[in-house]
Amino acid sequence: MYNPRDIIDLIADNVRKTRNPFGIPNFLCNRWWKNSAIPEKGEALLFTGLMYQFVPYIDQSTRYLEKFEDTPWADFVRYGKYVPNYLAGMGLDLLTPGKEKKRFNTILQNIAKILTKSNVDFYYQSELDSYSGILLYDLGDQEGFVRHAEFVAAKLKRAGVKSLITVDPHTTYALKVLYPKYTGQRFDVKTYFERVNLTSKNGGGRVTLHDPCFYGRYLELSDVPQKILRDLDIECVNVRNSGLFTHCCGGPAESISPKLSKEVLHRRVEELQSTGVPIVAMCPICLGNLEKSGAQVEDLSSLIARCAA
């Protein structure tokens, strides 16, 4: 296990100075929208919170953390804060495989595609899309989280944003529940799958949904993806721990203890694989983590896009 204080200080410093937990300039990691025809004006802003874009970087940094956990080298994390933020961020960017970045960008492009196909009036402006600060909240840096959330909320309010379409459970929870509570700013927040309205007979398969803790329990949204898949003629094979009682994939422990994260992951994957059908994730952290086990996992948006085509 790493010293949480070192990790928190590093992430908090990055968010404060670069608005990005890794210190990577946002324009470098947020490129999924380039060459797409998404309008710049509309009723609801597509707000990715940059979480899908972060997964390749999380995977890359976790690989290093895994290597040095519980060794004398682990203490060197505390010196990370003395490396200029953007320099460290650019270094991580160079080390992260482009193929992976492209793969996760495709997921966001699929989300845009299925929203368009569902006739949703949405738009995208990369300068309004920001990291929500949720990791600071989860790690207990309340002061850092509120400061960052106020910055993001003020930017959205200044731009006249009222409605948001989110793509991951952590950003959704932050914008829907935490921002009103801690910044006093309210937005109409809906996940992309709450806006999707598609029917097809192209499905025909069976899948097991892994409910993320924040959709299943905190936001109680598990019924929505089940209904979407039913409309696409896909059967969901549920595991015992789902919906309100879903089980964590271990992802949130990645930054503090990759070892612990793996322990929890293997227990969950075993349960999900017991159904014998492909696993579907709907959270970037869960997707990245479940894939580490070697299991066959697909993102919900990719499945919808494939079956609704």
């Binding site: 296990m1 949480p4 207990g140 803790c213 329990r217 905190y218 309100l244 009682f245 612990l260």
Partner: peptide
């Protein structure tokens, strides 16, 4: 024992039950 706190995944199962 402060470090133990950061083993928590904030998954909410304890609160649910």
């Amino acid at each position: 024992n402060a470090q133990e706190l950061w083993r928590c995944l904030h998954c909410g199962l304890c609160t649910q039950t």
